[in-house]
């Protein structure tokens, strides 16, 4: 699905992402983990195509499949939550289909109480649920999420995780998400990639990597990553 070849991204002279090779297969759910500033956001942006790598190439080799991306700080549009959802629906959908998609996703992320509130004035966690709803409202094959539940409360986190798992299973979605939550990685991911200084320090099955990190940095990092 995604092939990354020799990408490098610089901030001035400093290399902030440097990945010689990485492939992500269809249907995989990858959790990107790593300390602040390890390059998770930058890597996601490069895959999403919102910024370009200075060297190397990212290819998404499944025809007709495009990445959808939820930034670390999502923007709530200055209209009701309902209209935030309507704005992203394709024009060729019938009225009934639109109605159903909206009510389904409102229920999925418990947004019904917020439906009439203004999207730009929600709290951080509410904004994240709405931002995710805007993505999950129609089927997607490739989702890139940057810490989608970082501001949500415990119930919000549960809602988001359940929604993601259900959505990915139903639509056979490939998922790449940055997270700071070990529980989330174990819950959702089929593979965990640990970044350090823009490079892949370790990569492997979630349980395995969390319990038995192989590298020195991996061991240090996992010290603080207890469930």
């Amino acid at each position: 699905m995604i092939t990354i070849n020799a990408i490098k991204k610089y901030a001035g002279k400093r290399c902030i992402v440097n990945i010689p090779h990485l492939t992500i297969k269809e249907n995989e759910c990858v959790a990107l983990i790593g300390a602040n500033g390890s390059g998770k956001t930058t890597l996601l942006r490069i895959i999403a195509g919102t910024i370009e790598a200075d060297e190397g190439k990212v290819t998404i080799d499944s025809p007709g499949i495009h990445p959808y991306y939820m930034p670390q700080i999502s923007f709530g549009f200055a209209m009701s939550v309902l209209n935030n959802l309507k704005t992203v629906l394709p024009k060729d959908m019938s009225k009934d289909e639109k109605q159903k998609a909206i009510s389904d996703v409102l229920k999925l992320l418990d947004l019904e109480p917020l439906a009439k509130k203004v999207g730009s004035k929600l709290s951080g966690g509410e904004t994240q649920r709405m931002a995710l709803a805007r993505l999950l409202i129609t089927p997607k094959k490739l989702l890139l999420l940057d810490e989608p539940s970082s501001a949500a409360d415990i119930k919000g986190i549960d809602l988001i995780e359940t929604a993601l798992i259900e959505f990915c299973k139903k639509n056979e979605t490939t998922l790449v998400m940055a997270t700071h939550s070990p529980k989330q990685a174990l819950n959702i991911a089929t593979r965990v990639i640990l970044l350090q200084g823009g490079e892949i320090a370790e990569s492997g099955a979630p349980e395995e990597l969390l319990k038995n990190p192989q590298t020195e940095w991996g061991k240090q990092f996992m010290e603080h990553w207890r469930v």
Partner: peptide
């Protein structure tokens, strides 16, 4: 607010007309 708004809108793959409309509404 264009950079933040556009990062979100591009992530949602919204067409150019929607993006322009959002920029105008946002800055009414």
């Amino acid at each position: 607010n264009a950079p933040r708004l556009l990062e979100t809108a591009n992530g949602l793959r919204l067409p150019r007309t929607s993006k322009t409309k959002l920029l105008l509404i946002e800055n009414k």
